[in-house]
Structure formats: C-alpha cells, structure tokens
Simulated scan of single mutants.
Amino acid sequence: MTPPKELKSFKPRKSPAAKPRAKTTRKPAVKKKSATFPWKPVIIGALLILLSPFYYGYVVNFFSSSWQWVKNIGKNPHYRTYKSFGIDIPMRYKIHGIDVSYAQGKIDWPKVRAMEEDSVRIKFAFMKATEGLLTVDPYFKRNWREAAKNGIRCGAYHFFRPYKSGLWQARFFLQNVNIESGDLPPVVDIERLDNVKPEVMRKELHEFLKHVESKLHVKPVIYTGLSFYKDYLEGDFEDYPLWIAHYNKPQLKAGKNTNWWFWQHSETAHINGINHTVDFDAFKGDSIQFEQFLIR
C-alpha cells in the first residue's frame, strides 16, 4: 500500500488590514420650534381690564344688583329701597315731590333738582308759608323763588289752628302768598284739634276753605294724617282733594272712594342740597293729570 502523500500545511490568507474609520463630528439635532400662544400679552391685557375702574365698577354694580335682588325676594315688587334717597318708595307712582319748611334750613335747590335715581326725581315741592294768624315761615319767600327758578312746581301751605278764626287765617295766608298760573293749588294743613271740639274745628276749616276758594277760584287741598282724616274729616270734606300722610307702607289704604291725590309716604328722605331729613310725597296720577291739577 502506497503511503499517503504528506499534506502541505494550510496557512490562512491574511486579509488586508481594515483602514480605521475617519472620525466625524456629528452636529446636534436642531429641535423644531413649536408654535406657542402669546400668553404674555394676553395676561397683561387681562390684568389691565381687571384693574380698570370701568370693569371694577361693572363687577361691583353686578354683584350689588344681584344682592339687592336676593334681599328683595319675597318683598312687594312695587315697593323697594332707593339707596340715594335712603327710603323705600312705592314704584306705582311716577311723579314725586317733597314738602319743606324752616326745619330744613337753607336749601340748595339746583342740587335738589339734579338728584335722580332710576328715574325718580323731585318734580314738585310744597312749602310752608304761614301758621295761625301771625307766623310766616322765615324760609318761605326764598324757597318759593328758588324752587320755581329751578323748574320745580311749587305749592304753598298754611298750618291751621282750629282755635283761631278760619276766615282770618285764610286772609293772612293770602296776604303772604302770591299764587299764579302753573303753581299747585293752595294747601291747608290740619293735624290737631288744639283742645277744641271736632265740630268747632270743622266749622273754622270750612270758613278757611270757602274764603280761599272764592279768591283763587280753585279748590284748596287738605293735608292731614290718615287717622285724623278717618276720625274727624271723613264725610264732611269729600269735595276737596286730599293730601294724606301715611308712613312706611307699600300702599295708601285710605279707601277706594277717598279723594286723595298726594301721599306723604315717608318723613325721613335724604335729598341732595338739604341738610335735614325731608318728607317725601307721591302724586296719584300721571303726567297729564298732574298738569291738569296745576292752576291755570
């Protein structure tokens, strides 16, 4: 057997050395900017609005009105508080006024005329002129002149004393008051008996009314309290228009057939230009009836 040929030793082929890879500097990836909302101008604008007096006033008024609405739940919707006047006012009536005397002192009538809240403003004023047989209100002449000068319809009243002559009181009143076209009718204020019998008071009051009516050709208005009217006047003076005092009530319960035209519903009103509380009044009718009520 022939011996196998000796195998040549196998030498692996060396592969050519790999060249080292050249180092490369990688640029950092640039992040794409996303669209952002301009919060800063919006925040600044919101702050300017919130801090502005106009917005603040709007917010305050809104919450004030809401709170007033909450407070008025369950109350008479026709009788609400008027903050500037400081009283509740019956909202059924559109013509409002006041009555004044020396007790209110010197009045700034332009301020009275300019005052207004929610369409309520002073359109007429009754002012005390005389009392009894000798007393003239020290502020009457000024009030009569200045109120009319500022466009307020004026009326004068006499404080009646039942123990004195009604005729002579009427003469004294007319001597001190010059009532003209466009004024309210004259008023006689009767509130007490002055220790005389009711029939004596009624007799003298009739004398006063008849004399004034004969001179001015207009029926005077009788001012009195509701209880005094029911106790001593009801049924005897039905031909005369009435001005009745009855305070802090949503409506005047004087009876459907009572000939009342003015209602003094508060005695504690606050009026710009007057440094003392004031009686506040409402006229029963509308603007046309008010004009018809004036002296022509």
Rank of each mutant, 00 (worst) to 15 (best):
M1D: 12
P4Q: 07
L7T: 10
L7P: 14
R13E: 15
K14G: 12
S15A: 08
A17C: 11
A17F: 12
R21F: 12
A22M: 14
T25N: 13
P28C: 03
K32C: 02
K33Y: 09
A35D: 14
T36Y: 09
P38R: 01
P38M: 04
K40Q: 14
P41F: 04
V42K: 05
L48Q: 09
I49G: 04
L50T: 07
S52W: 03
S52E: 06
P53I: 08
Y56S: 12
Y56F: 15
V60K: 15
V60D: 08
N61W: 10
N61D: 11
F62Q: 08
F63C: 03
Q68L: 11
G74A: 03
H78L: 12
Y79Q: 01
Y79L: 01
R80V: 13
T81W: 10
G86I: 01
I89K: 01
R92V: 10
R92I: 09
Y93W: 06
H96F: 11
I98S: 03
V100I: 06
S101G: 03
Q104D: 00
G105F: 02
A114R: 07
A114I: 01
M115V: 03
S119D: 09
R121P: 14
I122M: 01
F126G: 02
M127I: 03
K128N: 01
T130I: 03
L134Y: 15
T135V: 15
P138Y: 05
P138S: 08
Y139I: 02
Y139R: 15
N143C: 02
W144E: 01
W144I: 00
E146C: 00
A147M: 03
K149F: 00
N150F: 00
I152C: 04
I152M: 02
R161W: 13
P162A: 05
S165W: 10
S165L: 10
G166H: 08
W168Q: 14
R171Q: 15
F172L: 03
Q175W: 09
N176V: 05
V177W: 00
I179T: 10
G182T: 02
P185A: 06
P185F: 02
P185Q: 06
V188Q: 05
V188E: 00
V188D: 02
R192S: 14
R192Y: 13
N195I: 07
N195L: 13
M201L: 15
K203W: 09
L205Q: 02
L205M: 10
F208Y: 09
L209C: 04
K210H: 14
V212H: 05
E213F: 07
K215M: 12
L216K: 02
H217T: 11
K219P: 09
P220K: 00
V221Y: 01
G225M: 08
F228R: 12
Y232C: 07
Y232I: 06
W243Q: 05
A245L: 08
H246W: 12
H246D: 15
N248K: 07
K249T: 13
P250F: 01
Q251S: 15
K253M: 13
N257Y: 07
T258Y: 04
T258G: 05
W260P: 00
F262M: 06
I274N: 04
N275E: 03
D279Y: 03
K284D: 06
S287N: 12
I288K: 11
I288G: 10
F290E: 11
Q292R: 13
L294D: 01
